[in-house]
Write a protein that binds this DNA or RNA. Structure first.
Lengths: 212, 212
DNA sequence: TCCACATGTGAACACTGTAAACACTGCCAT
DNA sequence: ATGGCAGTGTTTACAGTGTTCACATGTGGA
């Protein structure tokens, strides 16, 4: 928004971040496919090739946008973590897991374009601990989930032998549900109902972790 | 494969299905992005615009490929259904749910390109009962899941008040897990381990349906 | 001061989807 | 048999994309 008018200097001065911001806006509006290199530079008021001084490819730009989207998600979950009231270790652990799931789906519903972009780049969860994907606490979404599950074990809710790969069980359910809500058959589900079913999804995950 | 050599007649004679087959092959090799209209016609040995006599646009071709992929998935699950041994209503119901989940993830692992294409077209699960998406039994994957869950209620495993929207809980978990395995951090997990975790995902879903 | 280096530009290429006008062919009614 | 007509495939063309190469323009450090 600060660069809509034609700039006066030949050099932009802050092109990298400006391109990233424009890319994020495009992703917000239309998902990963919408982050088109030429359109990004157009919005910033610069020639298409200028982008290549700051990003190797279109894919590199998209990856940076994806990281930013992931960081936004992490920030949203961080906020829910901070709002968890004091209590027993068990109640805190349960609240943390619920916060991750709830924040995750809420982000997908509030920002579907960013959400799809966050998980479009395939290796984005592999090296998922990069700072560029983290919120204020310095933790990526997957790391926040790990925190919650470790608390599950520490507080005795979950037997230790179930802990390995548990994050993937939880992540699968919530991620799949989020996709169903924004792209799939649950697309037309009213928001309040979607929130209610989200809680059932989390209930299911909890049951899977605690049942015999 | 039958049309690799230049055809002799001006008219192809079977272009629609040939284009669909070429599109499926492209999807198998590289997912939805790889089904490129011009490349599809090229493989069939025909000019790009010939496709427009059979498909409204590239999206229509992609939708047809997507339907075919879904039908292939349904066929795979059908086969697992048929292999379920006789038994109590409860054991059959449990085996059916497990067959849907197992077949679903196995298809994603065996044919990641087709799997991604199947669920790329967004409205593909909305009007999900179309015959073009079904296997030999005439049921689409989502309908097969519905059958299994109805059997859960009928055999008394699942309380009837939990039945509404239960297919979405199950679908979320399995679909999310499949995505994790082909695109996400579980991409490098050896096949046998992936199969093992798949069973844990299904265990979790079962627990969520039966627990208090 | 001046010049090396970083940064932005221009023209060009190969690709894509798609539209409009044209060409060929097989079939049906005369 | 013989038109002609509807269906099918082709040609040409255009707008849009990512990307490369050569060039222009500033800016900071010696």
């Amino acid at each position: 928004m600060s660069e809509t008018r034609a700039r006066q200097t030949y050099h932009h001065g802050d092109l990298g971040p400006a391109l990233l911001a424009a890319g994020i806006e495009l992703a917000r509006e239309g998902g990963p496919d919408a982050v088109v290199l030429r359109e990004t530079t157009r919005r910033v008021g610069v020639s298409p090739n200028a982008a290549y001084r700051h990003f190797a490819d279109r894919d590199a730009l998209l990856a940076a946008v994806s990281d930013a989207a992931l960081a936004t998600l992490a920030t949203a979950i961080d906020a829910l973590f901070d709002a968890i009231p004091q209590g027993t270790r068990e109640s805190v652990a349960r609240a943390q897991l619920r916060a991750v799931g709830t924040g995750y789906v809420a982000f997908a519903l509030d920002e579907p374009g960013l959400f799809r972009t966050a998980f479009f780049v395939s290796d984005n969860l592999e090296r998922s601990s990069a700072a560029s994907k983290s919120g204020p606490s310095g933790r990526s979404p997957l790391e926040l989930l790990t925190v919650a599950l470790d608390a599950y074990v520490a507080s005795g809710i979950m037997p230790a032998d179930r802990r390995p790969k548990a994050e993937f069980l939880a992540w699968s359910s919530v991620h799949g549900f989020a996709l169903l809500c924004i792209d799939g058959p649950l697309r037309t589900l009213p928001r309040d109902q979607a929130d209610a079913v989200t809680q059932r999804v989390i209930d299911m995950v909890e049951a899977g972790f605690t049942a015999p």
